[in-house]
Design a protein around this nucleic acid. Structure first.
Lengths: 242, 242
DNA sequence: AAGTGGTCTAGACCACTTT
DNA sequence: AAGTGGTCTAGACCACTTC
């Protein structure tokens, strides 16, 4: 038999697929409870155990959040758990805090070949470009360039970004129905260019972490490209190898 | 601290603990099959499903490896899966390859305060210090300083490191009964010092990734501290945010 | 008390590997 | 054919939350 044909797909994976579709279609919205395991078992005509296994996997992949006694909820970017999932910078001393953001620019532009490739657009398609600086305890630490598909984020404006309190991903989720599920990062060491040096208050050619991130939403759809320059004299990027 | 006053500990977690102890004690060795689920169910006087759940978690945490039809095996560092678990450097172009290592030094020394703290030793305790350079396709890319507890690695020698074919963690596992389970890394950007510059063939102050790793064995015991300097002009450190 | 997720059981059957 | 892990079921009971 051909190796890649879906020769066999267990029931619980099909259920998992159904649930993911309901999430993607917005039938159940972030923060809301989905139907109970028993209800879903009835709906899909399977046993509760089979539904459980489907939900177990979705919870492990950060799509859902189980709360004993209360129900199963669509994951959100304002849970404590999610706060630092995409921000791996920790201070050398003290506890991790959420940074203050300063918006430098938010404009429309055309996608370069690179950005188009990463976001699966056509070169020249419209994108939103956001520039900002993040500071920890008044110390400018991150300079970020963010690229978003213009289509999906048509309504996004500088005012919106400034008014919104909370993380950017929370705003995307709330205002654009776009939930980030996972991201891939490529990390390099580079010397600060004139712009980064000025914004971060360091000499040119100071070694900085260059972190390029592509974030994916439902269905492995890339919906954000972000390039960040991190000062690492008082912070470090933390990672766990499991 | 004794493991816990179990406010409440489900059966399958106790089973999991028992299995972990058998792994730690060496009752089942890396690469070997552990008893079948049914045998374990009999041994622990529980149902097969309860054993399954315990094994599920251990497999997810890279302690065990399930193979349908064959059995459940103690994880090893020579599986394809494990090869790149601790090496996150990927080439900008081409496919990831295993690097060639060149040993520069392997000596005994006394732990500095920092190394002692990280390895939970007393300052001045004996440690093994290894210096080496890793090259990808003839290109020196990583300069590493490795610190190991002298006690545990009493027999380790330069000859042993040179003779051994395969990854260092595989050697630790085979020759010292020390299996690395997980690791934490702190990543910074720094300028190349004279030593690193010379060994990696770059000018001084070239931006390099500085990756500090503490690796843990069974029971969260730290058994290795490693500081690596990575060139990132042709490679990048890849990470996934799940 | 009622409803939710979490644990545990016992048994049936499926898929994969080896003999 | 026999043995392994993988799936699925049905039901019991526990722990947590809310009413």
């Amino acid at each position: 038999m051909s190796t890649d044909a879906p020769t066999f797909s267990p029931l619980y994976r099909q259920i998992k697929g159904s649930i993911m579709q309901s999430l993607q279609s917005g039938e159940w919205r972030p923060g809301e409870a989905i139907p109970s395991e028993i209800e879903l078992a009835v709906r899909y005509k399977v046993s509760q155990g089979t539904v459980r296994k489907a939900i177990d996997e979705l919870a492990a992949e950060n799509y859902l959040l189980r709360r004993q006694g209360k129900g199963t909820f669509v994951a959100t970017h304002d849970e404590a758990r999610a706060q630092f999932r995409f921000l791996r910078l920790k201070p050398d001393v003290g506890v991790q805090e959420y940074p203050a953001g300063r918006l430098l620019d938010c404009k429309r532009a055309r996608a370069s070949a690179e950005v188009a490739r990463l976001l699966r657009l056509k070169a020249g398609d419209g994108v939103v470009v956001i520039l900002r600086v993040l500071s920890f305890a008044e110390l400018p630490t991150v300079f970020e360039q963010i690229y978003l598909p213009g289509q999906r984020f048509r309504e996004l404006s500088a005012a919106m970004l400034n008014d919104y309190k909370g993380s950017m991903y929370k705003l995307f989720e709330t205002e654009f129905g776009t939930r980030m599920i996972r991201a891939e990062e490529k990390i390099r060491a580079v010397g600060a260019d004139a712009t980064a040096a000025q914004l971060l208050g360091v000499p040119q050619r100071t070694p900085l972490l260059c972190v390029e991130r592509v974030a994916f939403s439902y269905g492995e759809e890339p919906v954000e490209f972000r390039r960040g320059y991190y000062r690492t004299d008082k912070h470090y990027y933390s990672n766990e190898l499991g």
